[in-house]
Design a protein around this nucleic acid. Structure first.
Lengths: 129, 129
DNA sequence: CTTGACCTTCCCATCATGGGAAGCTTGAAG
DNA sequence: CTTCAAGCTTCCCATGATGGGAAGGTCAAG
C-alpha cells in the first residue's frame, strides 16, 4: 500500500502519517526501490489505533504510551486504565473550565440589551477591575 | 510605568504585552529616551480588559473586535452580544465534544479490570475497526 | 511517450505562550 | 563616583497538532 491508500484506509492524512513517523510514534515503513513508503495491513491497523486515540482526545505523547502498552503482551491492564483515568481527569478539568467561562459569559450577556444603543454591561464587565 | 509594573498591574506578562503590541492588538506605548516602554493607567486598563477577555476564552482576534467595540462610543450593544453569543456557541461545541470523549472513555474504562493481567477492553476498543 | 495523479523532501503558517541570549539602562548601596 | 543586580531591549527558538505549498521524482493509463 502507498501512503495515500494507507491514509484512506486509516483515516489519517498522508501528512500526519509522515509526521508520526518523524516523531517516532509509528515505525518507519519499508520503501520501494523508488523510495515510496509501503504499508502493510498491520501498519494500517496501528494507524487506525492512533486515529481512534486522537479522536478520544489523547495527546500524541499519551498515544505513544498506549501503543507501547498495546504492543506489550505482558502489560498490566492497570496501567492502561490509569492512563485513561488521567486523561478523563484532564477532560473534566477542561470541561469545568469552559463551563465556568460559559456561565460567566451568559451572566454578562443576560444583562445586555443587544440593541442599537451603546450601553453594554458585557464590555463594562470586561473593563471592570 | 515600566513594562514590568504594567505587567504586575494588569496580570499580563511582559512577554505577552510586547506580543500584543507586535500583532497590533494594543497601541504602541511611548518610550523613554532610553527606549523603555512607558505605560499609562489607561494602557493598563486596556491590558486588564484583554486579560479578562482571555480568561473568558476569547481568541486574540475576537479580543481585537471587542476592543474596537469598547473604544467605539457609538457601538450598538447588539454587536457585542452577537460576538459573545458566537463564543458561547463555540464553547458549547467544544464542551459537548469533550463530554462525548469522556463518556466514551468511561465506557471503555468501565469494562477494564485494571489489575495485573494483560486483558484490556480499552486497548481492544481502540484497536477495533 | 505524454499526461495527470501520486509520491518525495523541505520550508512555512497557525495560536498563545514562554525560554533564553546578548547587550543596554537604571537605581541603590558601598 | 563606581559597581552590581535587576530590569529593560531585540531576536531567535520551542511548544502541539495540523495543514499548505513548492520543487522535483515516479507510475500507470491512454
Amino acid at each position: 500500500m502507498n501512503i495515500g491508500q494507507a491514509a484512506a484506509a486509516s483515516q489519517v492524512s498522508p501528512k500526519m502519517i509522515r509526521h508520526y513517523e518523524d516523531i517516532g510514534l509509528v515505525q518507519r515503513p519499508k520503501r520501494t526501490p523508488s523510495n515510496y513508503r509501503t504499508y502493510s495491513d498491520n501498519d494500517v491497523h496501528v494507524l487506525r489505533f492512533v486515529r481512534a486515540a486522537r479522536d478520544l482526545g489523547f495527546s500524541l505523547k499519551q498515544i505513544g504510551e498506549l501503543l507501547s502498552l498495546w504492543r506489550d503482551r505482558r502489560r498490566p491492564s492497570r496501567k492502561v486504565k490509569a492512563l485513561v483515568a488521567q486523561h478523563i481527569g484532564e477532560l473534566e478539568r477542561r470541561i469545568a473550565e469552559m463551563q465556568a467561562m460559559k456561565a460567566a459569559l451568559e451572566h454578562l450577556s443576560h444583562h445586555c440589551h443587544g440593541d442599537e444603543r451603546p450601553e453594554c454591561p458585557i464590555l463594562d464587565g470586561l473593563a471592570r477591575p
